[in-house]
Design a protein around this nucleic acid. Structure first.
Lengths: 226, 226
DNA sequence: AAGGAAACAGACCGTTCGGTATCCTTCCGA
DNA sequence: TCGGAAGGATACCGAACGGTCTGTTTCCTT
């Protein structure tokens, strides 16, 4: 596969068109590096990092073992490269899903769980690579936990900003609340393979997003309805 | 270690005093089987299943390799035994933490996140073994996902019962909402090692638990406060 | 046309893996 | 007292692991 186009690796970064979905291993980078990154991302996420051997990666990528070690040096380096690129892609997709379509902060935050739902429904949804990486390694070590927290901090940072625009007097707390629901939905969807958990998360998040904007109105409505 | 008391394995189940905490590998069963189960639970949870070799388990258990294979037959069987015993212990602890102390359904459900917080603060807290097991294996396979769902179903079943007593007209939905917050808190605590995430979860769950019991009052209070 | 870089192919290395076989020690009850 | 069960110690097996090596093919450049 991909016999043609043995690109120069220094030119790889030029094929920068954004991917339509956040899942791993579907970039259209056909260089050896890109194919290795795609295959490694797919296999690491689907089967786990420790359960994925080098041989399986080069088989799916259609490269030689020498190429992998010339480009990445070690399996550890490859793992780090996968997490970095996958994290970046995922964040671009996720933040894009909130922002695209415009509207106010409430509209943007309300798009979180529908976006996650479409992710959960993909064939190649395998949960959060960062959570899974932490889970299958030494929990007293900081390596993967630091990477995961860095990723999470960026995501929650954006949510916190929107929470501030929403009018929350504690945007950081609201961001952490939504983060909890996001993490919970991801792992529940990974285990159950039911995208519907995103609806439950949206139902739970709803009152959190509306309680400043329409706080008075909702309180009055509830008082009337009881 | 444990030179004395080479118990008959058929008598192991008689040492049935409940453990004070839900974490893995601290049972006081000093038979070879018990020590192997403790060591395997500890190492599987701390370092991951695939990253834990047989040699490390028998070293921590202080048994011979022959003994492990005589008692469990294979690593796969040992993994299943660990998940089964650990799941049972955890559920007994968790449900006990809700029930002990009495009170009404709201009081019991309100104890969920304080209980989790004390779990998160333990030195040997390594996240949920079921979630981690799913994360480090083939996500298209059903083995670990089925085990995890069975565990979760029992836990949510109890919560659903309490939600019904609380007066919710959709106790199953409420149970799933709380389940989302529980899962989210567990993985967030595993990554961050901050037990405080349980407080955020409790803050988010609070309105869900009070909205029937004191719905009218809260609505009136909010209307007044805005 | 020729040279060189990049990638492919695959044999190979030392280590570790899960698992087996052999033999030895300890203890307990008949 | 003695036999057998439970467990310990250790050598060993084949397979798979991460990683290296040598050599060949392919393509781009000049």
């Amino acid at each position: 596969m991909a016999k043609l186009s043995l690109n120069k690796p220094s030119l790889n970064k030029t094929s920068k068109q954004k991917s339509p979905s956040p899942h791993g291993g579907t970039s259209d980078d056909e260089s050896a590096r890109g194919r290795l990154l795609n295959a490694a991302t797919h296999l690491f996420c689907k089967n786990g990092i420790n359960a994925t051997g080098i041989d399986a990666i080069i088989a799916e990528a259609g490269t030689a073992k020498t190429t992998l070690y010339k480009l990445f040096g070690s399996k550890t380096n490859l793992v780090n490269a996968v997490l970095e690129s996958e994290g970046k892609q995922w964040r671009e997709w996720f933040i894009g899903a909130m922002e695209e379509g415009g509207g106010d902060a409430q509209a943007k935050l309300t798009r979180i769980f529908p976006a996650l739902k479409s992710w959960f429904a993909e064939e190649r949804f395998y949960g959060c690579p960062f959570i899974n990486a932490v889970g299958e390694h030494d929990k007293d070590a900081k390596q993967f936990r630091n990477i995961a927290m860095k990723h999470k901090k960026i995501v929650l940072g954006h949510i916190e900003k929107l929470a501030g625009e929403l009018g929350s007097n504690e945007p950081l707390v609201l961001a952490h609340q939504l983060g909890l629901l996001i993490d919970g939905a991801i792992v529940a969807a990974m285990v159950s393979r039911d995208p519907g958990v995103a609806d439950t998360a949206a139902l739970t998040a709803g009152p959190l997003l509306g309680q400043w904007k329409a706080k008075k109105k909702r309180a009055a409505d509830q008082l009337e309805a009881v």
